[in-house]
Design a protein around this nucleic acid. Structure first.
Lengths: 162, 162
DNA sequence: CCGGTGTTGTTGAATAATCAACTAATATCA
DNA sequence: TGATATTAGTTGATTATTCAACAACACCGG
């Protein structure tokens, strides 16, 4: 590596604002979800992805990818969701190694009960804070960031996330 | 609360892009820091704030606020940084309840060694992915989000974070 | 069909974060 | 002053996450 280009004062300012903004949004949504529904945001995401899948069921690996969970983390998380009765694990019919996580009626009900408050909080923390133009810009910025990550991720050899 | 306004498809798309973008940036920076320096990003932030403080020292509460750590989390984290020899705790001279966390020479050296690689990663994950105009927009967007959080936070009664 | 290789998912140990309870010191105010 | 409330910070228990090792199965070439 050649001499590192240091951040300009402006770049550093924006970087820190960005960190703080992300943390404040996620802290607010997570706090609201736990307070009103007892569901941490990570679990909420799992339930959402299951609820949108055909048959409200997904293979563990697909679910992990959709929720950006590692396989291990998902395995532990689904175990806890199973204890709550919100998810069940079934054997995969086409691959005997595989497991299919399926949302139960109770899980769907819990999600349905939690969603309105969560949506309201997302509005408060993010959407209502921005102008429509800024929302549009944020979409493009986020897409650009994700594209860059996907690029460098293409040479990723990490155990779980590729 | 009246009937919740559901998210439009476009709002939901942007919200998910935003979540994913934040996760990809923080995952990348954290992975790089741990791989190259053995310092998780949260610890790095603590070291940075100390390094910038007068005397490279800060009261625990100020440090917690600067790093958006809860008091308990900071207390545990500083204990671990102390084990590494990067920080020392001293009694506060003006308030006998207080503790002052001070960066050691070793801690400063560790930070200095880690910084270039970290900066490089921030460029890769965020800055180089965006146009200068988008960086400017991101700064304003983040500022707006933080301002909204500060507003609703003004009625916050949480034990730690206010 | 058999052996190597990659994939799927789980497990338990180690590490980290959260939560509630607590000590000790300070601030407030009658 | 003295009673009470606040604030600073720590601690230990609970819970969550990561990490490395693993078992079971699928796939692929000979």
């Amino acid at each position: 590596m050649t001499t590192a280009r240091w951040l300009t004062a402006e770049e550093q300012r924006i970087w820190r604002l960005f960190i703080q903004a992300c943390e404040s949004v996620f802290a607010a949504t997570d706090t609201q979800l736990i307070r009103d529904s007892g569901i941490p945001h990570g679990y909420y995401e799992i339930l959402v992805h299951l609820s949108e899948a055909p048959g409200r069921a997904l293979r563990m690996t697909q679910l992990a990818h959709a929720s950006t969970y590692s396989k291990s983390r998902l395995s532990h998380a689904v175990a806890r969701l199973e204890e709550r009765g919100w998810v069940v694990r079934r054997d995969c019919p086409t691959d005997r190694r595989g497991q299919v996580a399926q949302l139960t009626a109770e899980g769907f009900a819990a999600l349905a009960a939690a969603a309105p408050g969560h949506v309201e909080q997302v509005r408060k923390s993010l959407i209502d804070a921005l102008t429509p133009e800024q929302m549009r810009q944020l979409g493009e910025i986020a897409a650009a960031i994700n594209a860059a990550a996907a690029d460098s991720g293409s040479k990723c050899h990490d155990a779980d996330l590729c």
